Computed example of a mutant assay.
Amino acid sequence: MQSAKSMSNTLKQKIQPGAHVPKHLTIVLTASFLLIVLCVLASLAFGSRFVQWDQLMAGLFHSEVDSYGATVVRERIPRTVFSFCCGAALGVAGALMQAVTRNPIADPSILGVNTGASLFVVCGIAFLNISTAGQYIWLAIAGAMVTAVFVYGIGSMGRGGATPLKLVLAGAATSAALSSLVSAVMIPRTTVMDEFRFWQVGSVGAGSWSSIAAFLPFLVLGLVLALLSAPALNALALGDEVASGQGVRTGVLRMTAAFAGVILCGAATALAGPIGFIGLLSAHLIRFILGPDLRFIIPLSAVAGAVILTISDVGGRLIGSPGELEVGVVTSFAGAPLLILLAAGMKVRSL
């Protein structure tokens, strides 16, 4: 059996800043580009009405064409862009939470962060009469931040500190309690309940250019902070002592990376609802393909998250045709079995 010291050295070699680029990175990037193109075309073509290829091209490249099919394509463009933005944000948020907590099953939905954002948004609508996307985002970020701090504090209590299992249990308990509060706020208020009963499930159907414009600054800020933190997070994966020895300020790093994750998760939740498991699926997929180096995991988790969410949205439209099945339901069906497999395989140890 490989010794702990040998395993640590192996991991260190894999994630050192000077480590070689994975041999199959070019293949992964090419496949990612092709998947993005296919997802865009599928999102524009499929729905309550299937759009033929000529109408699809007309809607994309010929603004003078005003046929029904071309008009449908133009109306689906903002939804597709919005889906990619939300998926990228949730994918990176999941990768950051796994790195900061050193918990391989950390995810905004599992740790209760999505639910905290939902509670603040619902309370803002019910008690403060907020109505704009910008107001939703600020409240959701505040709720996500408070919940993340609370869950980490609860999970850190007792012997052993914030172990992966304790964090998951704290997140599950917190999420259940906050979900009850969300229901308690919504049920007596018919207007609030009617407006957000589908939002609470998670959907990208309301994506528009105005919501994308409100979301974009938070997406850019979160992605920049995540990418800047990636090399230091690699050092953190070797342990706090090793990271400190390499000059990493572990406390500041954790706060910065967690802040980036909260921004991304909160903003996405505010506009699309609490969509679960995207971060878990994305980060695990990229880690399985490329290894543990966060310099590659973080940017490619954005791509994987965007692709997974968009595929789930298209799948929901096809399954629920002529209506649609909300994307939050589809991602839950896909993510729950993965979570069960990870737990059953005893993979809840530290990364």
Results as ranks from 00 to 15, higher is better:
residue 145 M to Y: 09
residue 60 L to Q: 02
residue 323 G to T: 13
residue 288 F to W: 13
residue 172 A to W: 07
residue 63 S to P: 03
residue 181 L to E: 12
residue 47 G to D: 11
residue 190 T to P: 00
residue 70 A to C: 08
residue 194 D to F: 06
residue 169 L to Q: 01
residue 221 L to M: 15
residue 182 V to P: 04
residue 133 A to D: 14
residue 100 V to C: 08
residue 49 R to W: 05
residue 137 I to V: 14
residue 239 G to L: 06
residue 188 P to D: 05
residue 302 A to I: 03
residue 298 I to A: 05
residue 315 G to Y: 04
residue 293 D to T: 13
residue 133 A to N: 13
residue 206 A to G: 14
residue 40 V to L: 11
residue 204 V to P: 01
residue 165 L to C: 00
residue 320 G to A: 08
residue 254 R to D: 12
residue 197 R to W: 11
residue 281 L to D: 12
residue 112 G to Y: 10
residue 49 R to D: 11
residue 161 G to H: 07
residue 262 V to P: 10
residue 211 S to K: 15
residue 109 S to K: 06
residue 283 A to P: 13
residue 314 V to E: 06
residue 133 A to W: 07
residue 13 Q to F: 02
residue 206 A to S: 15
residue 119 L to Y: 03
residue 228 L to N: 02
residue 335 G to R: 04
residue 305 G to I: 12
residue 309 L to F: 04
residue 107 D to K: 08
residue 131 S to C: 07
residue 241 E to S: 13
residue 258 A to Q: 02
residue 288 F to K: 14
residue 251 G to C: 03
residue 347 K to E: 11
residue 15 I to S: 04
residue 203 S to M: 06
residue 348 V to Y: 03
residue 210 S to E: 14
residue 232 A to E: 14
residue 30 T to N: 08
residue 333 F to Y: 10
residue 68 Y to Q: 15
residue 288 F to G: 12
residue 26 T to A: 14
residue 92 V to K: 00
residue 236 L to D: 09
residue 8 S to M: 13
residue 48 S to V: 00
residue 64 E to N: 08
residue 92 V to N: 00
residue 296 F to D: 11
residue 339 L to W: 01
residue 153 G to K: 09
residue 114 N to I: 03
residue 172 A to M: 15
residue 113 V to C: 06
residue 345 G to S: 08
residue 313 D to A: 09
residue 157 M to Q: 11
residue 279 G to T: 04
residue 66 D to Y: 01
residue 339 L to M: 05
residue 305 G to N: 12
residue 50 F to E: 05
residue 217 P to Q: 10
residue 184 A to I: 11
residue 133 A to F: 12
residue 217 P to W: 09
residue 288 F to M: 15
residue 194 D to A: 13
residue 96 L to W: 01
residue 97 M to W: 10
residue 136 Y to Q: 07
residue 323 G to W: 06
residue 147 T to D: 02
residue 218 F to W: 15
residue 276 G to V: 07
residue 86 C to Y: 02
residue 69 G to F: 02
residue 337 P to Y: 06
residue 101 T to S: 14
residue 238 L to Q: 13
residue 226 A to Q: 08
residue 238 L to N: 11
residue 56 L to R: 06
residue 279 G to H: 05
residue 22 P to G: 10
residue 211 S to T: 10
residue 1 M to G: 14
residue 215 F to K: 01
residue 191 T to P: 00
residue 265 C to F: 07
residue 348 V to E: 04
residue 256 T to M: 13
residue 117 A to S: 14
residue 203 S to I: 08
residue 346 M to S: 13
residue 14 K to W: 00
residue 66 D to C: 00
residue 79 R to G: 03
residue 212 I to A: 09
residue 220 V to K: 08
residue 74 R to E: 07
residue 215 F to W: 12
residue 83 S to V: 02
residue 271 L to V: 09
residue 296 F to P: 11
residue 186 M to C: 03
residue 348 V to P: 00
residue 34 L to A: 14
residue 23 K to R: 12
residue 317 R to K: 15
residue 39 C to Y: 02
residue 226 A to W: 05
residue 145 M to A: 14
residue 17 P to R: 03
residue 133 A to K: 04
residue 318 L to M: 14
residue 98 Q to T: 06
residue 32 S to H: 01
residue 51 V to Q: 06
residue 1 M to W: 07
residue 151 V to R: 00
residue 239 G to N: 03
residue 207 G to K: 07
residue 85 C to V: 15
residue 282 S to N: 08
residue 295 R to P: 09
residue 327 V to N: 03
